[in-house]
Design a protein around this nucleic acid. Structure first.
Length: 224
DNA sequence: AAGGTGAGCAACCGCGGACTT
DNA sequence: GAAGTCCGCGGTTGCTCACCT
């Protein structure tokens, strides 16, 4: 019953004032009880979001500067979609703002890259056995991706799928965090190129706490 | 002038982890 | 230690507005 009464959608000015007043009294915590105490018909989550992304003092509103854009691009390259982490490096900017910026920015960039990629492959495909990747992946009527029957093409698609899967992102998140703690990285002897390089941290066999990387009890493998 | 389209943004949702009881 | 609650994060949705045809 209570949940049905909760308001959703855009905030009114009076609601903002009410929220600001109650946050000044109660502080930025216990959002559920804060929401109830305020008399606002909003969830604690909604109040928290509104406060953090819009009402919080010292927030910068408006377009991101060229310098900020540069920092975002650089940090995204380094950390990936760690928006809150990136936002901490940009005082006055919220993770939501940065995420929205990136989405707009990335969409454009991806379109340009894809176009260039297809064009260059289409040119060379006339001379090579290999067809352009753009031809190996087609979008079916239900919106899903379909690989060509050629096993070589299917392999390329599977690599693409792995690289964009939750497993991969979790693995890279985990690995980047873990590798930050390591001072030295060794490269597999058969690295054919930088793109295909297999790297691993130097293992200290005397350190009993790290008997095996694979025995880690973290949540890395707990994917259903 | 009207309709279509895409960009930008605010807000919501679901999940996982931290914290509390 | 288990269960419940809260919080934070990243992904997604939907609205508004400007621009184009």
């Amino acid at each position: 019953m209570q949940e049905e009464e909760l308001r959703k959608g855009p905030w009114f000015e009076e609601e903002d004032e009410q929220l600001t007043a109650i946050v000044e009294i109660m502080g930025e915590k216990r959002w559920d009880s804060l929401a109830k105490a305020s008399g606002l018909r909003r969830s604690g989550k909604s109040c928290r979001l509104r406060w953090l992304n819009y009402l919080r003092p010292n927030l910068k509103h408006g377009r991101l500067s060229g310098e900020e854009e540069k920092i975002i691009l650089q940090l995204h390259k380094q950390w990936g979609n760690k928006w809150s982490k990136i936002a901490r490096r940009l005082p006055g900017r919220t993770d939501n703002e940065i995420k929205n910026f990136w989405r707009s920015h990335l969409r454009k960039k991806a379109q340009v890259q894809e176009q260039g990629y297809c064009e260059s492959f289409t040119k060379s495909a006339k001379q090579e056995v290999y067809n352009p990747p753009c031809d190996t992946i087609s979008i079916t009527t239900d919106g899903s991706l379909k690989a060509s029957d050629d096993p070589l093409h299917a392999l390329k698609l599977s690599n693409y799928a792995i690289a964009n899967s939750p497993y991969e992102s979790r693995l890279t998140d985990w690995a980047s965090g873990w590798l930050e703690e390591q001072s030295e990285v060794r490269h597999h002897g058969d690295c054919p190129s930088l793109d295909l390089c297999f790297c691993y941290p130097v293992w200290n066999s005397e350190d009993s706490s790290h008997t095996s990387i694979w025995s880690s009890s973290g949540s890395l493998w707990d994917v259903v």
